[in-house]
Nucleic acid binder design. Structure first.
Lengths: 213, 213
DNA sequence: TAGATTGTTAATCGATTAACAATC
DNA sequence: TAGATTGTTAATCGATTAACAATC
């Protein structure tokens, strides 16, 4: 039913959600597409177009009820549900995510942390014992896991992805540097390339420098 | 001179750089736009268009010399230079980045880490002593810093951004949740919203679920 | 040379912006 | 009611794809 929404629109949804959340925190009740567009640095037209992909959430002459719109987008993003998650790779990034995402108090339920380093296995972070990665397959057979976070070095990631996919996990949040292999259509992989982001920054810094001369 | 390159193209540059690096590692010497397009899941046309924004790096009948092209893109991304960097916020994310980016052995030079938590101040990570955030302004007055990494809670970030900008730092890699304030045109802020990425994943998982029914 | 593949122009496609009737 | 602002259609803009002459 929601099929065919352009990915440009989808990528803006979390941003709408953040801005609306912040307006809610400020106790603001309603907003027009024009006001929102000025805050978000978009056009009012684009906001209305984006939202109308999903429904008619506004009211002529009034604008949008922020609470309602926020809740609608929350639902669209699937944030009204809870997700069982595991972290594969308990290094700094894995630990950072465990602390950080937990803190957000959304519906993210961490049910397991895995690592292959014997020095880490057995330790606990945030009340979760780090398990040996060799027990991953067994664990996945016994527990429902919706999302696996891959925060381990790239060379190990390939085999882990295979295991995870074979065990029926549908969502992969991939911080590893592996180049995407073939995965089934019904598995969603979201790749995070932090270095890409840093390179974009250095590109722009370089451009700035060049334009000065 | 490089002014006016579309941001869609710029965002693809790091990806080209990664793929070419991986080909280099595999000892491959040359590649045609067609072959590369199949590996990267783009069209050959798009690759040629993208590259020709910056110059003519290929050769008819031959394709592209991978080593040359990789080096060219490296230069475009400003990765042939070195950057002095500081981390503001020595929590999990800050520490993860310090370890992780260092490991990459590119030209990223961490020259300082700051936090306001007295329990952290004075400790060392990766040979860098964590300094009190109150000494940030003083430090910036005495040291050239190109990029500041903001990995601290949003509520503190606003004041820190002001200090950093006032002290002439031109690049900000922002992991905090602050909504972007006004900054001068010659300051580049690259915002990383990890939760946005996770929300995109849950959106797609939800879409998948909906389409099944 | 013949084949391969680029660089580049033209055609197409999709996304953003503008305009406005509908209506709260 | 009059003013404000939506939802939506049409116009514009920009990015991607196709085509092909140039040339290694």
């Amino acid at each position: 039913m929601d099929k065919g929404i352009s990915s440009a629109v989808i990528k803006r949804l979390p941003r709408y959600y953040r801005y609306l959340g912040s307006l809610l925190d400020d106790g603001i009740k309603r907003i027009s597409s024009k006001d929102l567009s000025e805050r978000m640095n978009l056009t009012a037209s684009q906001i209305r177009q984006d939202l109308n992909n999903f429904g008619s959430f506004g009211q002529q002459g009034y604008g949008y009820n922020i609470e309602v719109l926020h809740a609608e987008i929350k639902k669209l993003l699937g944030l009204d549900k809870t997700y069982n998650m595991i972290i594969v790779g308990a290094g700094n990034i894995g630990q950072a995510l465990l602390n950080y995402i937990n803190y957000q108090k959304r519906g993210y339920n961490f049910v397991g942390v895995f690592d292959k380093n014997p020095k880490l296995v057995g330790l606990s972070i945030r009340g979760l014992e780090i398990r040996d990665i060799d027990t991953l397959e067994d664990f996945l057979g016994k527990n429902k896991v919706d999302i696996a976070v891959l925060s381990l070095p790239g060379n190990n990631a390939e085999q882990v992805i295979k295991t995870i996919v074979d065990c029926g996990v549908k969502g992969i949040w991939n911080f590893s540097h592996i180049l995407p292999a073939e995965t089934p259509d019904d598995v969603i992989i979201e790749n995070v390339h932090l270095t890409d982001s840093l390179m974009t920054l250095t590109y722009k810094l370089t451009e700035l420098e060049n334009n000065k001369n």
